[in-house]
């Protein structure tokens, strides 16, 4: 987040987002937060990688990843590895295209790192802050732990 502070905020500033779908819902994560993406075998997902749907709140549902990838996030707090579906797109979104979440939803969504939405024609992309997700999910691990 340190890099972000130096940037110029305002209209026309674009955000690069990594778009992926989980169980019919589309999520968009800040590409800058992602350290690396690594393909992995759907049959043998490593134990240290946490499936995305489990932390984001798709509780009580069996979610399968057609083409799982291990997304590694780095911060001062440590490293977090999440298993996500292989990203389908990387889009550049201007800030004004981002919509704040409705008042009723926002308090719940923020806990899961979801902080905005993008209304794309008739579909909605949920913009998620992976670092916050890792923090709220207490997923940070030290380099040596892995």
């Amino acid at each position: 987040m340190t890099g972000v502070a130096e940037e110029t905020y305002g209209a026309g500033t674009e955000l690069r987002l990594l778009v992926f779908s989980i169980d019919g819902s589309r999520f968009a994560a800040d590409a800058d937060q992602v350290d690396s993406l690594q393909l992995c075998d759907p049959e043998s997902v490593p134990g240290h990688a946490v499936p995305f749907h489990e932390v984001v709140g798709f509780t009580g549902r069996a979610v399968t990843y057609r083409c799982p990838e291990i997304c590694t996030i780095r911060s001062e707090a440590g490293i977090c590895r999440l298993v996500i579906e292989s990203p389908e797109d990387i889009i550049a979104v201007p800030w004004e295209s981002l919509r704040p979440l409705p008042a009723l939803i926002e308090p719940f969504a923020v806990q899961r790192g979801i902080w905005a939405g993008i209304a794309e024609s008739n579909r909605i992309i949920l913009v998620i802050d992976l670092c916050r997700l890792a923090s709220t999910g207490n997923l940070w691990k030290m380099q040596g732990d892995i």
Partner: peptide, 27 residues
């Protein structure tokens, strides 16, 4: 219209819809 579900919310919240470019919640 089509309601996009949102994880981590109570069951009485169905999801989100787009109304004239704005995102609205549906209960």
């Amino acid at each position: 219209e089509e309601v996009s579900p949102i994880p981590g919310t109570p069951s009485c919240i169905i999801g989100l819809i787009i109304v004239r470019g704005d995102i609205e919640s549906v209960v």
